[in-house]
Amino acid sequence: MKRYELVIFDWDGTLMDSVGKIVACMQQTATQLNMLVPTEAAIRDIIGLSMNEALNVLHPAASAQTREEMISVYRQQYLQLNKTPSPVFDGAEELLLALKSSGHSLAVATGKARAGLDRVLTETGFATHFQASRCADEAKSKPHPQMLNELLQQLNVAPQKALMVGDSIHDLNMANNAGIDAIGVSYGAHRSDKLSQANPIAIVSSPLAMLPVITGSV
């Protein structure tokens, strides 16, 4: 019997190498609007949060109107202007295919908005790998457990049979808040020392390194 029936993945920094692009677009957005430019470290710390929560952290004094303008400019930067590549990580699709072939259900819980996730799922061809997904504009922001709770309910999986995989402390704390196990990946937003604060069952340095942990072959 499989230890886990359902594996839930974060997207940015976990399956897609998009942290660099997010950092660049956030900094360019601030520059374009003549605002204080946040550091790379500060931006890495908000990856995984919803956009509104991220702006609360990075630009707490900004008005609601300014934040709306920032979201618009950021979207333009990300979709049209910024050319930083954001490929899927080596081994990511192989991992997903291996998990599917071994009978695991797969889902996504992401800080992206629905339109953004649907776009990258189509662009990567990954849409068929996942049975369900939840996005930041459909639930409370990580680390609130709403996204995970809804996925568990939709797919009829008990918390002890589910696993969250993410590159951010927000992902792992969301898993803790939902009462499910988590694996941290150290190749995305946060490094091992920060991820270890949330007590994941493992921290891995590549997508395929998590396969034996999930399948119970270690």
Rank of each mutant, 00 (worst) to 15 (best):
K2V: 06
L6G: 03
I8T: 03
W11N: 03
T14F: 08
D17V: 02
S18Q: 04
I22N: 00
A24D: 01
Q27E: 10
Q28P: 02
A30L: 00
A30W: 00
T31V: 04
N34Q: 00
M35A: 11
M35P: 10
V37A: 05
E40P: 01
I46P: 11
L49E: 10
L49Q: 11
L49W: 10
S50E: 04
V57T: 03
L58K: 04
P60N: 09
A62K: 01
S63N: 02
T66R: 09
P85G: 10
V88E: 15
F89L: 08
S101R: 03
S102F: 12
S105A: 15
S105W: 15
A107T: 07
V108E: 03
T110G: 11
R119D: 08
V120P: 06
V120M: 07
L121Y: 13
T122Y: 15
A127V: 09
F130E: 10
F130Y: 06
Q131L: 13
R134L: 06
R134F: 00
C135I: 02
A136V: 05
A136L: 03
K140D: 14
H144A: 14
H144I: 06
Q146T: 13
E150I: 04
L151R: 00
L151C: 01
L151Q: 03
Q153M: 12
V157H: 08
Q160G: 13
L163D: 10
V165G: 01
G166W: 07
I169L: 15
I169H: 12
N173I: 11
M174D: 10
M174K: 06
N177L: 05
A182W: 08
G184S: 08
G184N: 06
G188V: 07
R191F: 09
R191A: 13
L195R: 11
S196F: 14
V204N: 10
P207L: 07
M210I: 03
M210K: 14
L211K: 02
V213G: 07
G216D: 11
S217K: 13
